[in-house]
Design a protein around this nucleic acid. Structure first.
Length: 516
RNA sequence: CGGGGCAUAGCUCAAUUGGCAGAGCGCUUGGUUCGGGACCAAGAGGUUCUGAGUUCAAAUCUCAGUGCCCCGACCA
């Protein structure tokens, strides 16, 4: 958790430090072999290990979407420019970050390939920054009657947003995500859907990713372009900064009106449908890294780990090699039979220590070492990727505590409970950090002092407008992350108060924090 | 789009300030090793970002271009 400082790869692991969390973050990605810049401006290559994590996320999320009645579909990558202009606020919100296709042909000229000027499109196509407009154009022909509703569709796709400053996973020009787009007969039902999907995300974040989140509303200024209300989940990274992990929007009738999607209700009257949209992206991988990783590299919650257990055989000669490999294979198949994602690292010519470091950097939760001594004693050596730190514990004691020797028969049955414990402990650890850096703040002086000490989530009363929000953001280099649901606030943070900025009476606290 | 920095081997960086293109790590091969990043030997790997200029001589100086990183504005 010493992650507020930069870490540089050294022979001893990530130990050399400067004051640079961002550099530490990039270093974890590199050491865990997750992703890299592609050379195409702002784009990212997700490497196999990183993609395997994304696939597990997809699987878990998809299951939850299906359980809540949704189905998957796929819509076009290209959006005709005219579709975007139908919903003005929406178009304005994305105007500054759209990639646009204007030609459809190349040609050779002077040994170079150029865009054929004669191939200009009649109407430019926008590479989708999000799919509301093109999906609603389609929904127009799918929805006629209340019997067609609700329409509950999700899409797994890539989108493009031409951001000025890209960062691996957190903000890349192209990113992978899912976007749900639902249509409902009533406002009540659409609102219920908006809240339900936020809860799906929150449940996924906490129980699969082991990341505690705050559920809340965005302020009008931070709202999704075209939405009536934007709900979000916010998490705190190890440096105290906030990261938005997912959003769920109540769109009202904005998009159905601009796409002219009406339905005949039970009373035989034409009505515009009510809509929602919600999404999470590969940014979640960034959140995962910044929440759990340590100076050894990535730490993965077991439920997200593509490899949950890695087996390392230890041997001195051919005879020992054969013996330990045979035992390793036996353990491997027994673990697999339990449904555990296990892998045997039987690469020859690498010192065991080198393998330990490699798999630790990649975040594998549990390692089983199998050497001649273990076989002789009929035991196995289990080493956890992390244990909860005790106050003032020395690094060597921490390392010792990660390791346990168990009789072979017991140890195989112990793997699942250990993984489950680690899953919970990660959440616990992250929750403790979040709690320790969340503070109720009542005056600007207090806020200033709080931010100087490294910051975190400041809970303060707010009744300002968009201009106030802007001025406040500039002064403190923070933003209003969300207006938390009342139950997300500590009991002494609820109730009436006075706006910290305007002095007006306020019935709600907001979270102020620096953010990614 | 503004301000700053950088560009040399796959990676991190040297190169006496204008004088033969180098090291560590990684990679390949062979041997010895293997309970927390092994060692020895041999080897592969370069249009020094691109183009022009100055010079007997340019990785080094000048000009132009391009790309990347950091700081702002923008942001899932």
């Amino acid at each position: 958790m010493s992650a507020q400082t930069k870490a540089v790869s050294t022979k001893e692991g990530i130990t050399a430090r400067t004051q640079d969390y961002a550099q530490w973050y990039l270093d974890v990605i590199k050491r865990a072999d997750l992703a890299e810049h592609s050379g195409v401006r702002g784009c990212m290559v997700i490497k196999p290990h990183g993609y395997a994590i994304w696939e597990t996320m997809q699987k878990e999320l998809d299951r939850r979407f299906k359980e809540t009645g949704h189905v998957n579909a796929y819509f076009p990558l290209f959006i005709p420019l005219s579709y975007l202009s139908k919903e003005e606020k929406h178009a304005a919100g994305f105007a500054k970050e759209c990639a646009v296709v204007t030609h459809h042909r190349l040609k050779s000229q002077d040994g170079k390939v150029i865009v054929d000027p004669d191939s200009e499109l009649e109407e430019p196509l926008v590479v989708r920054p999000t799919s509301e407009t093109i999906i609603w154009a389609q929904y127009k022909s799918w929805i006629e009657s209340y019997r067609d509703l609700p329409l509950l569709i999700n899409q797994w796709a890539n989108v493009v947003r031409w951001e000025m400053r890209p960062r691996l996973f957190l903000r890349t020009a192209e990113f992978l995500w899912q976007e749900g787009h639902t249509a409902h007969a009533t406002e009540k039902e659409a609102l219920e859907e908006t809240y339900k999907m936020l809860e799906v995300y929150a449940d996924f974040a906490e129980n699969v990713m082991s990341i505690p989140v705050i559920r809340g509303h965005k302020t009008p200024g931070e709202r999704f372009a075209g939405a009536v209300d934007t709900l979000c989940i916010e998490a705190m990274m190890q440096d105290g900064k906030a990261l938005q992990m997912g959003t769920s929007h109540y769109l009202g009738q904005n998009f159905s009106k601009s796409a002219d999607v009406k339905f005949l209700n039970k009373e035989g009257k034409l009505e515009y449908v009510y809509a929602t949209s919600w999404g999470v992206s590969t940014r979640l991988i960034g959140a995962l890294i910044m929440t759990h990783s340590d100076d050894l590299g990535l730490v993965l919650p077991p439920r997200l780990a593509p490899i949950q257990v890695v087996i390392i055989p230890i041997y001195k000669n051919d005879e020992e090699r054969e013996k330990t490999l045979a035992e390793s294979r036996a353990v491997l198949s027994e673990l697999k039979a339990q449904g555990i994602l296990a892998r045997l690292d039987d690469r020859d010519g690498l010192m065991p220590g080198a393998k330990y470091y490699e798999w630790e950097a990649k975040g594998v939760p549990l390692r089983i070492e199998i050497g001649p001594k273990d076989i002789e004693k009929g035991s196995l050596c289990l080493v956890r990727r992390f244990v909860l730190e005790e106050p003032n514990e020395k690094p060597e004691d921490l390392r010792r505590r990660r390791k346990s020797f168990l009789p072979r028969s017991e140890s195989l049955g112990a793997v699942k409970p250990i993984l489950e414990t680690m899953q919970k402990e990660l959440l616990e650890r992250a929750r403790a950090l979040q709690k320790s850096r969340t503070k109720i703040i009542n005056t600007l002086e207090e806020l200033e002092a709080f931010l100087k000490t490294g910051g975190g989530f400041a809970l303060l009363h707010w009744a300002g407008n968009a201009e106030d929000e802007d001025a406040m953001s500039k002064r403190f280099e923070t933003t209003i992350r969300c207006i938390p649901f009342p139950e997300e606030l500590p009991s002494d943070g609820r109730g009436e108060g006075k706006c910290i900025w305007t002095g007006r009476p306020s019935s709600q606290r907001v979270i102020i924090a620096a953010a990614y």
